[in-house]
Design a protein around this nucleic acid. Structure first.
Lengths: 226, 226
DNA sequence: GCGGCATGTATTGTATACAAAATGCACAGG
DNA sequence: CCTGTGCATTTTGTATACAATACATGCCGC
């Protein structure tokens, strides 16, 4: 899109994702325009995009606020993402090309390096991880799927949570990526679909565990009952 | 949304869905503004929405054209819709309330009447059918699902095709709705999900049969091989 | 003191004017 | 005849001004 509205979109989005604009905070067009150094026109375009992605909510009179997410809504988003990104993985496996597979292997290497260090490089991990998932979407070759997933992958709370990932979670995620690569190399769509579904669902439970609302039966390791 | 941009959205959308603006036709903002009786500002909002719904496509220099749909892309959209509306049906069944169920029964009655006449009232059928599916989305109680489905349900070619439905297709569709109601009444999510998936997939094949690109093994009734 | 209404203020919606960018055409050069 | 460059025109992007609407404050009646 155009330059100014793109910048406005990025700025506002980052303000929300970083938490600088707290959930429920009101968004006034003029204030944002000043902050972004542009006029209200591109701001309005940016707000429309952000509303479509559910990062902001509007009252019936069109006033904008940073969206507030209940655990239920986050669970919803994860559930949808698990299903849809699962489909993307299946399609990707069926349509995988050597070129994309090679790129994914390079991503995997990058992730491996980011995770290997004692103090894991979370930013590098997130970048490579994003690229990895983007390549899957590319291989799936469905603009529609891409558009839908784009609104599901960047969830503000999750984004913030990822920075608190422990080395353990990061390494597990890396292992699951390795399995995905195997499924892609074999062009086994259903395998890829199941791995991806499990991958996303595990991420959700990691999130839920870290954020109060435990819905699990038991959070401690299993032990003898007597 | 606001009045003028809403009207502009509806007008342009109808022009596309009705085929008055053919696939590939260029869309100039000023011309649309004149046609809609508003200025370019609301037109631009409308175009952004329509682009998000993939009804229009843009060149790298932001020029807009009515989207062209290949059979593959239509198949994609149907496949995604089958999966996602299936999920919506499952959730709806699990969360069904007597109020919504009653409304759905009224829709079903309306559909029944539209279909019963000798010359089926296709417009009445389409309206009631839309309402029926909208109620399912409402019962599913997921804004995210609703948003995603909104971009999938109204496909221009399908919309035009529906007007050529024969009484036979309409009655079959009505029967499937009856089954859905049974699944909802029993709160059987998986049943509802499977019926919905089959419902959408059947609709796709009806479309594909009517539009050249046959991908089926056989379109004639089965016969002895000798 | 409390509820409802009216007025002022804040905020969003639309129109218009202008700036930037791109496309098509014409023309010159090879 | 083809190609590339430069200009004219068209088209989109942004800013600003103005209109419409919603919200909040305070006042009046009860």
């Amino acid at each position: 899109m155009s330059k100014a509205s793109d910048r406005a979109y990025s700025v506002i989005r980052d303000l929300i994702l970083s938490g600088e604009l707290a959930a429920g905070a009101p968004l006034r067009e003029e204030a944002l325009a000043e902050k972004c150094g542009v006029s209200r026109t591109p701001i309005r375009e940016a707000l429309n995009r952000l509303e479509a992605e559910l990062l902001i909510q509007r009252t019936e009179s069109q006033r904008s606020f940073v969206a507030e997410w209940s655990l239920d809504e986050v669970a919803d988003a994860f559930e949808l993402r698990a299903v849809i990104e699962g489909i993307a993985a299946r399609r990707a496996a069926e349509r995988m090309t050597p070129e994309i597979l090679q790129k994914m292997r390079r991503c995997d290497t990058a992730i491996s390096e980011a995770v290997a260090r004692d103090t894991a490089d979370v930013d590098a991990y997130l970048d490579a991880n994003r690229e990895f998932h983007a390549l899957i979407v590319e291989a799936a070759a469905s603009p529609r799927l891409a558009g839908i997933l784009a609104t599901l992958v960047e969830q503000p709370i999750v984004w913030r949570t990822a920075h608190h990932y422990g080395a353990e979670e990061l390494r597990r995620s890396h292992r699951e990526h390795g399995e995905l690569l195997a499924a892609f190399a074999r062009r086994d769509g259903l395998w890829a679909q199941d791995i991806m579904g499990a991958h996303i669902r595990r991420a959700f439970h990691a999130y839920a565990d870290a954020h109060g609302g435990l819905s699990a039966i038991d959070t401690a390791p299993a032990r003898r009952s007597s």
